[in-house]
Simulated assay, not measured.
Amino acid sequence: MRRCLTFSLAVVALVGAFSVVFLPVSAQTKATATNVPVIPHEPVANFFKNAPGIYTGENMGIATSSKGTIYIFHRAYETRLFEYSPQGSFIREIGRNNYGFAFAHSVRVDAGDNIWAVDEGTDMLVKFSPEGKVLMVIGRREDPIGMLSNMPGGGVFHGRNEKYRFGRQTDVAFDQQGNIFVSDGYFDARVVKFDKNGRFLKAVGTRGNGNLQFNTPHSIATDFQGNVYVGDRGNARVQVLDNDLNWKANFPNVGNPWAVCVSGGPGPKSPGKQYLYASNSWQDSAPAAGAEFTGEVYKMELDGTIVGKFGVAGKAPGEFATVHQM
């Protein structure tokens, strides 16, 4: 499982529209859920405090450790991974100029407080220890000559479904046994399971709109029982799989889920009652009309029953543009 950053602090990584236009996907849609209670929320202004000369670009991913440490994976003219204190003060940078960094997409923290950077530009997952040492890499970059004609994150859908190669993978999650689940991605359409040592176990999915088919699986989360929740963004639904990646259910009423998250830490102790969160994001003014029916984050029971929602599209404090990760 993954930690959700406390919503009263800094809930989301917000990005610009150009980061999500490389593949044709369904236009952002209005959620079909009706009569949903509104959950009050309040923004905390100026929470993050950067050191002089330290700036963030597009904040693609955000995650917290068991100690409350916050990690932001962002991209501007380069991809960088920053660490902050629980109070939002800048602590350090991790992995700068790492071979696996080119086009940040998400960051997660596992039960051992190891930091996992998901880079869609290099088709690589990079696992760092809490001290910042590289412990594992899954995936590999394209041949440098072959990449010359594409900017990081560029290219075309291939659906190659190879064991240890990705297609601009998007996110990662973990179960109680330490197994690794990857949503893959823009150029593939599948979910991949590896064991805790990075050994391939199984992959499911093809491109389409049936069960166990995906159209930009953009985010992934697990619960304490090991169920897997996939933000099937282009198909405007959350797909639920069991731990062996068999289909269980679809939640089709919360719009296009750009980000999903299950509350509670990744173990080993039971976090108690858990909730699923899904963002129906506005594509950051592209088109502007989308602001009329997007921007909200849904809180659900794990069976898909909606508890409530919070947020609207916009750029003012308390409003959301592209909620890319929670």
Rank of each mutant, 00 (worst) to 15 (best):
E83T: 04
S66Q: 05
G57N: 11
M300D: 01
G16T: 11
E142S: 13
A10Q: 03
V25H: 07
T69Y: 11
T294W: 04
I54E: 15
N215T: 00
G16A: 12
V137K: 14
R168C: 09
R233H: 05
G88Y: 11
A288Q: 06
N250C: 05
K67Y: 08
N179G: 00
T322W: 02
A221P: 01
A45P: 03
R190Q: 15
R75I: 12
K193S: 03
N114W: 10
D175N: 13
L135G: 02
D195P: 05
R3C: 03
N161F: 09
N197R: 09
F166E: 08
G272L: 07
G159I: 06
S149A: 14
E301Q: 13
H324T: 07
N46D: 15
W282D: 11
F174R: 03
W116N: 07
T29M: 10
P266W: 08
R233P: 01
R80V: 15
N197C: 04
Q225T: 12
L14R: 10
G153K: 02
D171Q: 02
R160G: 01
G314S: 07
G198C: 09
K127H: 08
R141D: 12
I94G: 06
N98F: 08
V126N: 06
Y71R: 06
I39P: 01
A102W: 03
V44S: 06
K163E: 15
V38L: 11
V192Q: 04
G154I: 11
D184W: 03
V254Q: 00
A221W: 05
F128H: 14
G146Y: 09
R2T: 12
I39V: 13
E120C: 08
D188R: 00
V109T: 05
G68K: 05
N280G: 02
M1C: 09
P317S: 02
E93D: 10
Y164C: 02
T32Y: 04
N114H: 15
D184K: 01
F82G: 03
G308M: 03
F194Q: 03
